[in-house]
Write a protein that binds this DNA or RNA. Structure first.
Lengths: 221, 221
DNA sequence: TCAAAAGTGTTGATCCTACACCCATGA
DNA sequence: TCATGGGTGTAGGATCAACACTTTTGA
C-alpha cells in the first residue's frame, strides 16, 4: 500500500477521428516526461484545482495544451483508479471520449508541441503506457454502445455531410457494413435532419453528386 | 477558485431495493458530521489510500461502515466533480450503483449506527445535500438504461425467485407495466435461466403457487 | 456508353403487442 | 364454486434485413 495521503487525480482523453479512408482512428501522444517517458499514451494530465472548475475542464485544458484543440465535445466514460496503475502511487483517472470533426483533423497534424500519432484502436500497433489499453477498450465500448443505440456520431463529420458519409461513420465505429436502404429509411422516419443545403452538392470524383445535409444540435453526441 | 492543492476524493452509493409492495426504493442516510450535518444524503465517504486499493473498495468500505452491508455488487455510474459542489473545496465523487437483494433488506433496518431511510427515488420527500439529487437522477437513468437494454435486475431479488417477481422488478425500475406473455417468451427464448427448483414452490397467500427459478451468474448485473 | 456511387421499392422473416384463454389453489 | 393470480396460445401490426432496381454524373 501507498504511504501518500492524497491520490493523483487526472483526466485522460480518447479522441477518435476518421481518416481519409473513413476508418476509425485514435489519437495517442508520446510522453515527454517520466513516468513512462518516451512511451505512447492517451493524452492526459493532472487536475489543477486552481485552473479547472471540473474534471471536464481538466480534460479540455489537456487537449488544448497537448494537441492545440479547443471546444471539443467531451463525454465521460468512467473512472480508473487504484494504487497500482501508476508507479507514482495511488491515482485516479477520469476517462473522456471525444470525437473530432473531419475538418479539424489537419489542425492536429499542424500542432507540433508533442509527438502525436493516429492509430487503429482495434489493434493498436504501439504498446500503451499504464492501463491505457483498458481505457481504449472502455472508450470503444462506450462509443459502440451509443451508435448501436441509434445515436449518430455526427461529431466525426463536417457540419455539412452526405448520408453515405454518415453511414460510413457508423460502419467504421461498429466495424460492420450496413444496408443503405434501411439506414436511410431509419433516418428519414426519425424527422430531425434538415434537408438539402440548397447548393451544397459535393461533386465527388467521377460519380453522381450527393445531397448534403445538416443536423440540428440535438442529434449530435 | 480554491487555494487547495488537492481535491477531496470520495465515493457515493445509490443503493436501491424493492419494498414489500415491490416499489423501487433508495437508501439515504442522515449526515452525522459537518458539512450538511443533519441533512439527508447518499451514503458516501472519503477515499483512504492506505486502506482502499481502488475507488470501488472505498464504496464497499463505506457501505460496510455506514449500513453494515458486505459483498454488495457495485457498478460505476459516473464522476461528479468541481470546486462548488462541496463547501470544503474542490471535490470529486465517484457515484456507484448498487442493488440490494430482497433477503438482505432487513439487515439494513437492523444496523443502527446511522439514521437511514428508504425513499421514493422518483419523488424524494427529503431534500438531499450537495448535488446528490443529480446523482440520484444519474443512477436512475443508468439503472433504467440497463433494464431497457434487456438486462435483468436480478440483484433486487432473492436467489430463488418467481417470474412474476422478476417482471415486477423490471416494472418497478421502468415505472411501466409489461405484458406477462411477452415478458416470459423473451426470457425462455434467451436460454439461460435454469428451471424449476424442484420443491421450491412459493405458496403465496390464497392463489396458485408459482414456479421458482434460479439464474446463472452471467445474467445478473 | 460504361463504371461508380446515389438513391428507392419490394418482399419475406422476425419481433412485439394485445388479448383471450386455461390452470391450480385457498377460501 | 368462485376469486385470484399463475401460465400459455394466437393473430395483427410494426420493424428489419436482403436484394433488385432506377438515376445521375465523369470519363
Amino acid at each position: 500500500m501507498s504511504k501518500q495521503l492524497f491520490p493523483l487525480v487526472m483526466a485522460d482523453v480518447a479522441l477518435f477521428c476518421l481518416d481519409e479512408e473513413q476508418r476509425l482512428r485514435l489519437l495517442v501522444t508520446q510522453r515527454a516526461l517520466a513516468p513512462a517517458q518516451g512511451n505512447w499514451a492517451l493524452p492526459g494530465g493532472l487536475l489543477k484545482p486552481s485552473q479547472d472548475s471540473s474534471m471536464e475542464d481538466t480534460a479540455r485544458r489537456v487537449l488544448r495544451e497537448k494537441v492545440g484543440l479547443d471546444a471539443v465535445p467531451l463525454e465521460q466514460v468512467r473512472v480508473f483508479s487504484g494504487d497500482r496503475r501508476d508507479e507514482r502511487g495511488w491515482s485516479l483517472s477520469v476517462l473522456y471520449l471525444a470525437l473530432l470533426p473531419k475538418d479539424q483533423v489537419p489542425a492536429v497534424a499542424m500542432h507540433k508541441t508533442d509527438a502525436v500519432a493516429w492509430i487503429d484502436p482495434n489493434s493498436p500497433d504501439v504498446e500503451l503506457a499504464f492501463d491505457h489499453a483498458s481505457m481504449v477498450q472502455a472508450a470503444l465500448q462506450a462509443l459502440r454502445a451509443k451508435v448501436r443505440d441509434r445515436k449518430l456520431p455526427l461529431h466525426l463529420l463536417s457540419p455539412l455531410f452526405t448520408l453515405t458519409e454518415l453511414q460510413r461513420a457508423c460502419e467504421a465505429v461498429l466495424d460492420t457494413t450496413m444496408d443503405k436502404a434501411a439506414f436511410r429509411r431509419r433516418l428519414k422516419e426519425r424527422e430531425g435532419i434538415d434537408f438539402e443545403a440548397v447548393e451544397g452538392e459535393e461533386k465527388r470524383g467521377r460519380q453522381r453528386p450527393a445531397q448534403c445535409y445538416r443536423a440540428t444540435q440535438e442529434f449530435y453526441f
